[in-house]
């Protein structure tokens, strides 16, 4: 079995987007998602000595993050939170009977299926990105996700705009093929 090693110096570069993607679709709040990802990285640093090398770095970080997300749910589902919900529904007597209607699922609201689908999409994109050569992946991300203009990327990597478009073309072809296999 392959023994995996931890390299915290590359964690932000390699996994922050993946972890954030994983979190945001589960907690649906940008600030909370950022905090949870940060907590997961910090907890990872503190428990590095417990890493046995059986799982990949990313799998190990995801397992830490999952625990952080569960803790978050536990916190918001505390007795205080539940009491607030009950009070809202009991206090207003004039709206008796309305509560059931209000609780019927809104077909246009984000439902569990959509959440799971979006989560899978984000993870599928990051899985495909991880199969690209490093430079290609960085340039594709800068151009497509971070919206850097062509000139900035060319200056950063000291390449011509023709070089850039060749790299983007290769990345897009590989990404489309990969997504076709996993998603389309």
């Amino acid at each position: 079995m392959t023994q995996h090693e931890l390299n915290p110096n590359g964690w932000i570069k390699n996994y922050s987007d993946y972890l954030f993607n994983y979190t945001i679709v589960r907690v649906d709040d940008r600030e909370i998602a950022k905090d949870l990802v940060q907590e997961a990285f910090f907890a990872g640093l503190r428990s590095m000595k417990n890493f046995k090398g059986e799982a990949s770095e990313r799998t190990w970080l995801i397992s830490i993050l999952k625990r952080k997300i569960i803790d978050h749910y536990r916190k918001i589902n505390s007795n205080k939170g539940k009491a607030e919900v009950r009070m809202n529904y009991n206090a207003d007597n004039e709206s008796d009977g309305d509560w059931l209607e209000e609780r019927v699922a809104d077909p246009y609201a984000s439902n569990a299926e959509t959440v799971i689908e979006n989560s899978e999409l984000g993870l599928a994109i990051h899985d495909c990105l991880s199969t690209l050569p490093e430079k290609q992946a960085i340039i594709f991300k800068m151009k497509t996700i971070d919206n850097f203009d062509t000139e900035t990327i060319c200056n950063e990597f000291n390449i011509t705009s023709s070089n850039l478009w060749v790299i983007v073309h290769r990345a897009r072809t590989a990404m489309a093929n990969c997504m076709k296999k996993n998603w389309f």
Partner: peptide, 11 residues
């Protein structure tokens, strides 16, 4: 697909 997922990425 990349645009659909844009909001789920870190800025």
């Amino acid at each position: 697909l990349m645009n659909e997922n844009k909001e789920n990425n870190l800025k």
